[in-house]
Design a protein around this nucleic acid. Structure first.
Length: 495
RNA sequence: GGGGCGGUAGCUCAGCAGGUAGAGCAACGGCCUUUUAAGCCGUGGGUCGCGGGUUCGAAUCCCGCCCGCCUCACCA
């Protein structure tokens, strides 16, 4: 891990030489008052002559990103949190110690403080004429090459700090992500939702169908699960009278890693009492249009090869109808269990043998329908077997009042009218236990305290979860979830 | 877990009819006071992912392993 290549040695020598000359290395007494973007903005319209006349000096700090020497002068680009600006150092204009420092001790990658007035070069670039130049922190390792930058995706993910230094579009992605979560909070707070934080360590991993991570509490001497969803706690809060509640936080699922899955990911869940999943559809349309408007000023966006239009209302598609349409089954055939199972077998998506019919239909849906749902589509009417926490449909109790939102062939949100009948909820949990015994590892566990909470009375409520990482992927046109997670899960580096 | 592709200098990449490793950038030395992929001259730098095997000889061929990306299956 501690490697000493030639370039590191050279940089260490430069640092040692400075110390020997009495220069304070790693100084912390330079305080910049300006940023690159600020100066660019302020002097965008100023002519060369106007700049010549001003005597104001500015101070900036940042990283040297490129360096061009020639003779007794040099140019470099300084990068701070706002962007880049060019700096000019010239014997005569800059003090001798600045020229010497640059020539003998500074490299691309070093962090420096600069002060001086601005001017425009012959080619018109706004530039700071350095009247002071100080090393603030030495980069002992060289930055990646200047034109191709850092390409190796493994290094980009493992050493994200480096990726962020050299790839501006990566910085933009994460700024956009921050903006997006900020806008989501604004959206829900404006609508009188309360933001809460519920337990991440839970003694029972409920609220979704997934495999959890297990950890151990020493003092209590019990195993705890990292949550797979905050759902059951948020609905306890609905019981308590909060009525409108949301949480933006991390979920953990012990499943595969892929371009769409990271073991820990960010989920938005929100619940509204005295509402149904129909209201959630409208709220979702509003939310995404709001986000699109604020993030990019319009409701159309490009994702890979697709042009996506978020203008509401969005298409609504029954799950069973969708499977019929895309799997080529008739309305009569989809009612016949043997035909449905045969189709699943044919497509190689039949889950474990004893899987209930609803589960098989859901599998078929994933295989034949999902990839076609490019424009925003609410898929509605889910089989009750795959939705143990959702309210049954009044007209057809084999189905629940639930939807999933698909955009760009990918599930983005899951919502339903909540099941608030404690007796039905208990029966659903018991059914899940039977399925667990029949081989479904992801069947929901029985949460007795949750039943008890429902027995105190939960208002009719609708709730929804939105995968934030996938939403960010959509708005930043990122092909992989790793592109929107700062430090994605990777295998540890071997020694 | 299955399939495909990849790992060579600090970075980006060539080299793979087997004959002891190369370019550009970066580094080092020199020239150059408005450059911006600055330019010109010169120099150094590699356990060719790891371990075996075949061979007189392996970055190159074979086997195993490690790491990554893509893809399929489960999940959001």
């Amino acid at each position: 891990m501690i490697e000493e290549n030639e370039q590191i040695q050279v940089r260490k020598k430069k640092l040692t030489a400075l110390k020997e000359r009495g220069v304070r290395t790693y100084a912390n007494d330079f305080f910049p008052l300006h940023t690159a973007a600020e100066l660019h903005q302020r002097f965008a319209a100023a002519t060369t002559e106007e700049l010549e006349k001003r005597e104001e000096t500015f101070s900036l700090a940042g990283r040297i990103m490129s360096l061009r020497y020639f003779g007794k002068a040099a140019f470099f680009h300084l990068q701070d949190r706002s962007g880049q600006i060019q700096v000019y150092v010239r014997q005569g204009d800059s003090p001798p110690e600045a020229v010497t420092l640059l020539k003998e001790s500074l490299d691309v990658g070093d962090l420096v403080g600069v002060t001086g007035p601005v001017f425009r070069t012959r080619t018109g670039e706004l530039t700071i004429k350095a009247t002071t130049l100080r090393l603030l922190s030495k980069a002992l390792r060289p930055l990646p090459e200047k034109w191709h930058g850092l390409q190796d995706v493994e290094v980009r993910y493992r050493q994200r700090y480096l990726d962020l230094i050299v790839n501006p579009q990566v910085r933009d992605t994460f700024r956009k992500r921050a903006k997006l979560t900020q806008l989501i909070r604004q959206f829900f707070i404006e609508r009188d939702f309360l933001e809460v934080e519920t337990p991440i360590m839970q003694s029972l991993a409920g609220g979704a169908l997934a495999k959890p991570f297990i950890t151990h509490h020493r003092t209590l001497d019990i195993d705890l699960y990292l949550r797979i969803a905050p759902e059951l706690f948020l609905k306890r809060l609905i019981v308590s009278g909060v009525d409108r509640v949301f949480e933006l936080g991390r979920n953990f699922r012990n499943e595969g890693i892929s371009t769409k899955h990271n073991p820990e990911y960010t989920m938005l869940e929100f619940y509204q009492a005295y509402a149904t999943y129909e209201h959630m559809m409208m709220l979702t349309e509003e939310l995404l249009v709001f986000l699109a408007q604020e993030l990019q000023g319009g409701s159309r966006l490009t994702y890979g090869e697709h042009e996506i239009d978020l203008t509401p209302p969005w298409r609504r598609l029954g799950m069973v109808e969708a499977v019929c349409e895309y799997a080529g089954l008739s309305a009569e055939e989809i009612e016949r269990e043997d035909v449905v199972r045969a189709k699943a077998r044919e497509l190689g998506v039949l889950p474990y043998a004893a899987a209930p019919l609803g589960k098989v239909i859901e599998e078929l849906f994933g295989a034949v329908v999902e990839p076609h749902l490019i424009q925003p589509t609410f898929v509605v009417s889910y089989p009750v077997e795959v939705s143990p926490l959702a309210r049954r449909n009044d007209a057809d109790p084999r189905f629940v009042d639930r939807f999933e939102l698909y955009i760009a062939g990918r599930e983005l949100a899951n919502a339903f009218s909540e099941l608030n009948d404690p007796e039905d909820q208990l029966q659903r949990f018991l059914e899940q236990l039977r399925e667990r015994e029949a081989g479904d590892e992801e069947a929901h566990a029985l949460d007795e305290d949750y039943i008890r909470a429902l027995e105190y009375g939960m208002p009719p409520t609708a709730g929804e979860g939105i995968g934030i990482d996938r939403l960010v992927m959509l708005f930043t046109n990122s092909p992989s979830i790793r592109d929107v997670i700062l430090f994605p899960q990777m295998r540890p580096e071997k020694k």
